[in-house]
Protein backbone atom coordinates (compact mmCIF):
# COMPACT_ATOMS: atom_id res chain seq x y z
CA UNK A 1 0.00 0.00 0.00
CA UNK A 2 1.06 3.56 -0.64
CA UNK A 3 -0.57 6.92 -0.17
CA UNK A 4 -1.95 8.69 -3.26
CA UNK A 5 -4.61 11.30 -3.93
CA UNK A 6 -8.16 10.61 -5.04
CA UNK A 7 -7.26 12.29 -8.34
CA UNK A 8 -4.23 10.04 -8.87
CA UNK A 9 -6.31 7.00 -8.01
CA UNK A 10 -8.84 7.83 -10.72
CA UNK A 11 -6.03 8.54 -13.14
CA UNK A 12 -4.50 5.13 -12.45
CA UNK A 13 -7.86 3.44 -12.90
CA UNK A 14 -8.33 5.10 -16.29
CA UNK A 15 -4.82 4.27 -17.43
CA UNK A 16 -5.07 0.64 -16.34
CA UNK A 17 -8.40 0.09 -18.09
CA UNK A 18 -7.25 1.85 -21.26
CA UNK A 19 -4.17 -0.34 -21.20
CA UNK A 20 -6.15 -3.53 -20.62
CA UNK A 21 -8.92 -3.15 -23.19
CA UNK A 22 -8.46 -1.56 -26.62
CA UNK A 23 -12.22 -0.93 -26.83
CA UNK A 24 -12.06 1.54 -23.94
CA UNK A 25 -11.74 5.23 -24.80
CA UNK A 26 -12.07 8.44 -22.81
CA UNK A 27 -14.07 11.34 -24.18
CA UNK A 28 -15.14 14.68 -22.74
CA UNK A 29 -14.51 18.37 -22.54
CA UNK A 30 -10.82 19.17 -22.15
CA UNK A 31 -9.84 15.63 -21.19
CA UNK A 32 -7.00 15.50 -23.72
CA UNK A 33 -4.93 18.58 -24.52
CA UNK A 34 -5.92 20.52 -21.42
CA UNK A 35 -5.22 17.34 -19.38
CA UNK A 36 -8.60 17.41 -17.67
CA UNK A 37 -10.44 20.26 -16.00
CA UNK A 38 -9.61 18.64 -12.65
CA UNK A 39 -6.48 16.93 -14.02
CA UNK A 40 -7.96 13.47 -13.62
CA UNK A 41 -6.88 12.59 -17.16
CA UNK A 42 -3.41 14.08 -16.75
CA UNK A 43 -0.87 12.44 -19.08
CA UNK A 44 -3.35 10.10 -20.75
CA UNK A 45 -3.22 11.86 -24.14
CA UNK A 46 0.55 11.54 -24.19
CA UNK A 47 0.35 7.88 -23.27
CA UNK A 48 -2.62 6.68 -25.33
CA UNK A 49 -2.84 9.22 -28.15
CA UNK A 50 -5.68 11.25 -29.66
CA UNK A 51 -7.53 8.21 -31.02
CA UNK A 52 -8.45 7.12 -27.50
CA UNK A 53 -8.34 10.33 -25.48
CA UNK A 54 -10.74 12.65 -27.22
CA UNK A 55 -11.57 16.29 -26.63
CA UNK A 56 -15.12 17.34 -27.42
CA UNK A 57 -16.86 20.63 -27.97
CA UNK A 58 -19.22 21.82 -25.22
CA UNK A 59 -22.01 19.48 -26.35
CA UNK A 60 -22.93 17.17 -23.49
CA UNK A 61 -26.02 15.76 -25.17
CA UNK A 62 -24.02 15.13 -28.34
CA UNK A 63 -21.01 13.38 -26.85
CA UNK A 64 -22.97 11.46 -24.23
CA UNK A 65 -25.14 10.16 -27.08
CA UNK A 66 -22.05 9.42 -29.14
CA UNK A 67 -20.86 7.25 -26.28
CA UNK A 68 -24.15 5.35 -26.12
CA UNK A 69 -24.06 4.73 -29.87
CA UNK A 70 -20.45 3.55 -29.74
CA UNK A 71 -21.39 1.21 -26.89
CA UNK A 72 -24.19 -0.25 -29.03
CA UNK A 73 -21.62 -1.51 -31.50
CA UNK A 74 -19.16 -2.90 -28.98
CA UNK A 75 -16.92 -0.12 -27.68
CA UNK A 76 -16.67 0.66 -23.96
CA UNK A 77 -16.74 4.43 -23.67
CA UNK A 78 -15.79 6.43 -20.60
CA UNK A 79 -17.60 9.75 -20.88
CA UNK A 80 -16.40 12.53 -18.61
CA UNK A 81 -18.77 15.27 -17.59
CA UNK A 82 -16.78 18.28 -16.46
CA UNK A 83 -19.26 18.21 -13.61
CA UNK A 84 -22.43 16.20 -13.21
CA UNK A 85 -24.28 19.50 -13.06
CA UNK A 86 -23.64 19.59 -16.82
CA UNK A 87 -24.95 16.06 -17.25
CA UNK A 88 -28.38 17.61 -16.96
CA UNK A 89 -27.87 18.93 -20.49
CA UNK A 90 -27.43 15.29 -21.51
CA UNK A 91 -30.23 14.00 -19.29
CA UNK A 92 -32.07 12.51 -22.27
CA UNK A 93 -29.06 10.43 -23.25
CA UNK A 94 -28.23 9.31 -19.71
CA UNK A 95 -31.82 8.60 -18.68
CA UNK A 96 -33.69 7.81 -21.89
CA UNK A 97 -31.14 6.16 -24.13
CA UNK A 98 -28.44 4.48 -22.04
CA UNK A 99 -30.57 2.54 -19.57
CA UNK A 100 -33.62 1.89 -21.76
CA UNK A 101 -31.84 0.35 -24.72
CA UNK A 102 -31.44 -3.10 -23.19
CA UNK A 103 -35.13 -3.36 -22.42
CA UNK A 104 -36.43 -1.71 -25.57
CA UNK A 105 -34.38 -3.99 -27.77
CA UNK A 106 -35.55 -7.08 -25.93
CA UNK A 107 -32.05 -7.71 -24.61
CA UNK A 108 -30.23 -7.27 -27.93
CA UNK A 109 -28.27 -4.14 -27.01
CA UNK A 110 -26.70 -3.63 -23.62
CA UNK A 111 -24.81 -0.38 -23.10
CA UNK A 112 -21.43 -0.84 -21.40
CA UNK A 113 -20.70 2.81 -20.76
CA UNK A 114 -19.20 4.73 -17.84
CA UNK A 115 -20.29 8.29 -17.17
CA UNK A 116 -17.94 9.92 -14.70
CA UNK A 117 -17.02 13.28 -13.27
CA UNK A 118 -17.31 15.42 -10.18
CA UNK A 119 -20.67 15.57 -8.46
CA UNK A 120 -22.11 17.45 -5.52
CA UNK A 121 -21.69 20.90 -4.09
CA UNK A 122 -18.20 22.41 -4.05
CA UNK A 123 -17.31 25.90 -2.84
CA UNK A 124 -19.55 28.81 -3.76
CA UNK A 125 -20.33 27.67 -7.29
CA UNK A 126 -23.93 28.79 -7.08
CA UNK A 127 -27.13 26.95 -7.85
CA UNK A 128 -26.40 25.72 -11.38
CA UNK A 129 -22.99 24.20 -10.59
CA UNK A 130 -23.70 22.56 -7.25
CA UNK A 131 -26.02 19.68 -8.09
CA UNK A 132 -25.83 16.40 -6.25
CA UNK A 133 -27.35 14.15 -8.89
CA UNK A 134 -27.24 10.76 -7.18
CA UNK A 135 -30.91 10.62 -6.30
CA UNK A 136 -32.01 11.63 -9.83
CA UNK A 137 -30.02 8.89 -11.44
CA UNK A 138 -30.48 6.20 -8.83
CA UNK A 139 -34.22 6.37 -9.45
CA UNK A 140 -33.77 5.22 -13.05
CA UNK A 141 -34.02 1.47 -13.69
CA UNK A 142 -31.11 0.31 -15.82
CA UNK A 143 -28.53 2.66 -14.34
CA UNK A 144 -25.99 1.84 -11.65
CA UNK A 145 -24.66 4.63 -9.46
CA UNK A 146 -21.57 4.67 -7.25
CA UNK A 147 -20.13 7.42 -5.08
CA UNK A 148 -16.56 6.74 -3.95
CA UNK A 149 -15.26 8.68 -0.94
CA UNK A 150 -11.65 7.49 -0.73
CA UNK A 151 -8.81 7.09 -3.23
CA UNK A 152 -8.97 3.33 -2.86
CA UNK A 153 -12.71 3.20 -3.51
CA UNK A 154 -12.37 5.68 -6.37
CA UNK A 155 -9.87 3.47 -8.14
CA UNK A 156 -11.56 0.17 -7.44
CA UNK A 157 -15.06 1.33 -8.30
CA UNK A 158 -14.07 3.14 -11.50
CA UNK A 159 -12.25 0.07 -12.78
CA UNK A 160 -15.27 -2.08 -11.99
CA UNK A 161 -17.58 0.42 -13.68
CA UNK A 162 -15.58 0.30 -16.90
CA UNK A 163 -15.84 -3.50 -16.97
CA UNK A 164 -19.56 -3.53 -16.20
CA UNK A 165 -21.87 -4.39 -19.10
CA UNK A 166 -24.40 -1.72 -18.10
CA UNK A 167 -24.38 2.06 -17.91
CA UNK A 168 -22.63 3.02 -14.67
CA UNK A 169 -22.33 6.50 -13.22
CA UNK A 170 -19.22 7.14 -11.16
CA UNK A 171 -20.07 10.25 -9.17
CA UNK A 172 -16.75 11.56 -7.98
CA UNK A 173 -16.52 13.85 -4.98
CA UNK A 174 -15.46 17.25 -6.24
CA UNK A 175 -14.09 18.37 -2.88
CA UNK A 176 -12.06 15.20 -2.35
CA UNK A 177 -9.87 15.19 -5.49
CA UNK A 178 -6.82 16.24 -3.48
CA UNK A 179 -7.55 14.08 -0.44
CA UNK A 180 -5.11 11.25 0.23
CA UNK A 181 -5.47 7.63 1.20
CA UNK A 182 -3.80 4.25 1.11
CA UNK A 183 -4.19 2.28 -2.10
CA UNK A 184 -2.75 -1.04 -3.27
CA UNK A 185 0.35 -0.77 -5.47
CA UNK A 186 -0.25 -0.42 -9.22
CA UNK A 187 0.82 -3.99 -9.96
CA UNK A 188 -1.99 -5.30 -7.77
CA UNK A 189 -5.39 -5.43 -9.48
CA UNK A 190 -7.90 -3.45 -7.43
CA UNK A 191 -11.55 -4.07 -8.23
CA UNK A 192 -14.26 -3.07 -5.78
CA UNK A 193 -17.66 -4.55 -6.56
CA UNK A 194 -20.65 -2.29 -7.11
CA UNK A 195 -23.29 -2.69 -4.43
CA UNK A 196 -20.90 -3.31 -1.54
CA UNK A 197 -20.88 -0.84 1.32
CA UNK A 198 -17.96 -0.63 3.72
CA UNK A 199 -17.75 0.02 7.42
CA UNK A 200 -15.21 2.80 7.59
CA UNK A 201 -15.20 2.80 11.39
CA UNK A 202 -16.68 0.31 13.81
CA UNK A 203 -19.00 1.51 16.55
CA UNK A 204 -21.77 0.26 18.80
CA UNK A 205 -24.16 3.11 19.74
CA UNK A 206 -25.33 4.55 16.43
CA UNK A 207 -24.92 3.89 12.71
CA UNK A 208 -24.07 6.92 10.61
CA UNK A 209 -24.82 5.99 7.02
CA UNK A 210 -23.01 8.19 4.54
CA UNK A 211 -21.38 8.33 1.10
CA UNK A 212 -19.11 10.54 -1.00
CA UNK A 213 -18.41 13.94 0.55
CA UNK A 214 -20.28 13.10 3.72
CA UNK A 215 -17.89 10.25 4.62
CA UNK A 216 -15.02 12.45 5.84
CA UNK A 217 -17.59 14.56 7.67
CA UNK A 218 -19.02 11.49 9.40
CA UNK A 219 -15.56 10.26 10.37
CA UNK A 220 -14.68 13.63 11.84
CA UNK A 221 -17.94 13.68 13.79
CA UNK A 222 -17.36 10.13 15.04
CA UNK A 223 -14.04 11.21 16.52
CA UNK A 224 -15.74 14.12 18.27
CA UNK A 225 -18.54 11.90 19.55
CA UNK A 226 -16.04 9.45 20.99
CA UNK A 227 -14.97 12.14 23.44
CA UNK A 228 -18.54 12.25 24.63
CA UNK A 229 -18.67 8.47 24.97
CA UNK A 230 -20.87 7.90 21.93
CA UNK A 231 -19.54 5.14 19.74
CA UNK A 232 -20.56 5.77 16.14
CA UNK A 233 -20.28 3.22 13.36
CA UNK A 234 -19.57 4.80 10.00
CA UNK A 235 -21.06 2.91 7.08
CA UNK A 236 -20.00 4.21 3.67
CA UNK A 237 -22.55 3.07 1.08
CA UNK A 238 -20.02 3.45 -1.78
CA UNK A 239 -22.77 2.44 -4.24
CA UNK A 240 -26.21 4.03 -4.23
CA UNK A 241 -27.51 1.54 -6.77
CA UNK A 242 -27.33 -1.34 -6.25
CA UNK A 243 -27.78 -0.58 -2.58
CA UNK A 244 -26.08 -2.86 -0.06
CA UNK A 245 -29.09 -3.65 2.12
CA UNK A 246 -27.27 -6.38 3.97
CA UNK A 247 -24.51 -4.09 5.21
CA UNK A 248 -27.08 -1.51 6.28
CA UNK A 249 -29.18 -4.05 8.14
CA UNK A 250 -26.12 -5.63 9.78
CA UNK A 251 -24.97 -2.30 11.13
CA UNK A 252 -28.39 -1.18 12.32
CA UNK A 253 -29.09 -4.54 13.95
CA UNK A 254 -25.94 -3.96 15.96
CA UNK A 255 -26.45 -0.29 16.95
CA UNK A 256 -30.26 0.07 16.83
CA UNK A 257 -29.97 3.77 15.99
CA UNK A 258 -29.46 5.47 12.62
CA UNK A 259 -28.56 8.83 11.19
CA UNK A 260 -28.24 9.11 7.41
CA UNK A 261 -26.07 11.94 6.19
CA UNK A 262 -26.35 12.64 2.49
CA UNK A 263 -25.21 15.38 0.14
CA UNK A 264 -28.43 15.60 -1.90
CA UNK A 265 -31.74 17.27 -1.11
CA UNK A 266 -34.15 15.87 1.46
CA UNK A 267 -37.18 15.37 -0.76
CA UNK A 268 -36.95 11.92 -2.39
CA UNK A 269 -33.26 11.88 -1.46
CA UNK A 270 -31.08 8.78 -1.09
CA UNK A 271 -31.73 8.78 2.66
CA UNK A 272 -35.47 8.43 2.11
CA UNK A 273 -34.94 5.14 0.32
CA UNK A 274 -32.47 3.83 2.91
CA UNK A 275 -34.84 4.86 5.68
CA UNK A 276 -37.79 3.08 4.03
CA UNK A 277 -35.88 -0.15 3.68
CA UNK A 278 -34.69 -0.14 7.28
CA UNK A 279 -38.13 0.44 8.79
CA UNK A 280 -39.74 -2.08 6.48
CA UNK A 281 -37.29 -4.90 6.98
CA UNK A 282 -35.87 -4.49 10.49
CA UNK A 283 -38.39 -2.29 12.25
CA UNK A 284 -37.94 -4.17 15.50
CA UNK A 285 -34.21 -3.50 15.52
CA UNK A 286 -34.79 0.24 15.88
CA UNK A 287 -34.67 1.91 19.28
CA UNK A 288 -35.33 5.40 17.90
CA UNK A 289 -36.70 7.12 14.81
CA UNK A 290 -34.26 7.45 11.93
CA UNK A 291 -32.90 10.94 11.35
CA UNK A 292 -31.60 12.37 8.11
CA UNK A 293 -29.14 15.19 7.55
CA UNK A 294 -29.06 16.50 4.00
CA UNK A 295 -28.87 19.78 2.12
CA UNK A 296 -31.64 22.20 2.96
CA UNK A 297 -34.44 22.14 0.42
CA UNK A 298 -33.38 25.27 -1.45
CA UNK A 299 -31.34 26.04 -4.59
CA UNK A 300 -27.74 26.60 -3.57
CA UNK A 301 -27.03 30.24 -2.64
CA UNK A 302 -23.71 31.79 -3.67
CA UNK A 303 -23.11 33.55 -0.36
CA UNK A 304 -20.57 31.58 1.67
CA UNK A 305 -22.36 31.81 4.99
CA UNK A 306 -25.66 30.77 3.45
CA UNK A 307 -24.03 27.95 1.50
CA UNK A 308 -22.62 26.54 4.72
CA UNK A 309 -26.07 26.74 6.22
CA UNK A 310 -27.50 24.71 3.33
CA UNK A 311 -24.93 21.89 3.51
CA UNK A 312 -24.77 19.05 5.99
CA UNK A 313 -22.18 19.92 8.63
CA UNK A 314 -20.73 18.62 11.89
CA UNK A 315 -23.12 20.57 14.10
CA UNK A 316 -26.19 19.28 12.29
CA UNK A 317 -24.88 15.73 12.31
CA UNK A 318 -23.93 15.79 16.00
CA UNK A 319 -27.33 17.20 16.88
CA UNK A 320 -29.06 14.43 14.91
CA UNK A 321 -26.94 11.74 16.54
CA UNK A 322 -27.73 13.06 20.00
CA UNK A 323 -31.41 13.08 19.21
CA UNK A 324 -31.48 9.45 18.10
CA UNK A 325 -29.38 8.53 21.14
CA UNK A 326 -31.72 10.51 23.40
CA UNK A 327 -28.78 12.34 24.99
Amino acid sequence: MREITYRQALNEALAEELERDPNVFLMGEEVAEYQGAYKVSHGLLQRFGPRRIIDTPISENGFAGLGVGAAMVGLRPIIEFMTFSFSLVAFDQVVNNAPNMYTMSGGQFNIPITFRGPNGPAHQLGATHSHATENFYASVPGLKVCTPATPRDAKGLLKTAVRDDNPVLVLEAELLYSSKGMVEPPDEELLIPLGKAEVKREGSDVSIICYAQTVPLALQVAAQLEEEDISAEILDLRSIKPLDEKAIFDSVTKTHRVVIVEQDHPFCGVGAEVCYRIQKNIFDALDAPIFRVSQEDVPMPYNERLEKAVLPNADKLIAAVKQVCYT
Partner: peptide
Protein backbone atom coordinates in the same frame (compact mmCIF):
# COMPACT_ATOMS: atom_id res chain seq x y z
CA UNK B 1 -34.37 -3.54 -33.15
CA UNK B 2 -32.60 -6.28 -35.08
CA UNK B 3 -29.00 -6.78 -34.12
CA UNK B 4 -28.38 -9.60 -36.58
CA UNK B 5 -29.41 -7.41 -39.50
CA UNK B 6 -27.56 -4.34 -38.22
CA UNK B 7 -30.76 -2.44 -37.54
CA UNK B 8 -30.00 -0.33 -34.46
CA UNK B 9 -33.55 0.98 -33.77
CA UNK B 10 -36.30 2.45 -33.71
CA UNK B 11 -35.84 5.59 -31.50
CA UNK B 12 -38.77 7.61 -30.30
CA UNK B 13 -37.39 10.81 -28.85
CA UNK B 14 -37.05 13.13 -31.82
CA UNK B 15 -33.37 13.54 -32.80
CA UNK B 16 -32.07 11.74 -29.69
CA UNK B 17 -30.78 8.94 -31.93
CA UNK B 18 -28.73 11.23 -34.14
CA UNK B 19 -25.89 11.37 -31.57
CA UNK B 20 -26.13 7.56 -31.29
CA UNK B 21 -25.64 7.28 -35.05
CA UNK B 22 -22.57 9.49 -34.76
CA UNK B 23 -21.28 7.16 -32.03
CA UNK B 24 -21.74 4.16 -34.31
CA UNK B 25 -19.83 5.99 -37.04
CA UNK B 26 -17.19 6.89 -34.46
CA UNK B 27 -16.79 3.18 -33.67
CA UNK B 28 -16.37 2.39 -37.38
CA UNK B 29 -13.53 4.87 -37.68
CA UNK B 30 -12.05 3.87 -34.31
Amino acid sequence: FDRKNHMYGGHAIVAAHVPLAVGMAFAIKY
